[in-house]
């Protein structure tokens, strides 16, 4: 657990560094759901940098795949039932747009800006996620499913 926490702090520091670079150079919040959503909108004037950020994520992912493959637990990923994956993806897609942000936009950038909206959103999605896992694992015992 100690090692996991240290890796968490190391990775979190890199995430924080990326967020700080985006603020310093572009003056932008690094919210992945907004960047991804905007990257898909053809009429958006900010499309190019958003597409490039997503490309950066993919290249970062490829370098992990090459040099740190434990980042991707392929066996347990493949074990997830496809309807569960589809439902989860849809909820995350709709929810992050409706709520104007995800873990990065609200959880990292918003909290660092002391935004009350982001604090409310972060507490809410962690509570909703915790309740979901509680119901799935400890009430309905769907552990093997999700």
């Amino acid at each position: 657990m100690f090692q996991s926490l240290m890796m968490g702090a190391l990775g979190g520091t890199l995430i924080g560094l990326s967020v700080a670079i985006m603020m310093l150079f572009l003056g932008r919040i690094t919210g992945i759901s907004g960047i991804f959503g905007g990257a898909m909108m053809p009429s958006d004037g900010d499309r190019v940098w958003r597409v490039l950020f997503v490309l950066g994520l993919l290249v970062g992912g490829l370098s992990l795949w090459l040099y740190y493959p434990t980042a991707f637990p392929v066996v347990s990923l493949k074990a997830m039932a496809w309807p569960v994956v589809v439902v989860a993806g849809l909820f995350v897609g709709v929810g992050t747009r409706m709520g104007s942000g995800c873990t990065s936009g609200h959880g990292v950038c918003g909290l660092a800006r002391l935004s009350v909206r982001s604090l409310v959103a972060t507490i809410t999605f962690i509570a909703a996620g915790a309740l979901t896992v509680f119901l799935a694992r400890h009430v309905f015992h769907l552990g093997a499913w999700i």
């Binding site: 909820f91 909703a128 309740l131 799935a136």
Partner: peptide, 8 residues
């Protein structure tokens, strides 16, 4: 909604 999808 995001939290539910995140938990699932």
């Amino acid at each position: 909604l995001f939290g539910i999808g995140w938990g699932v």
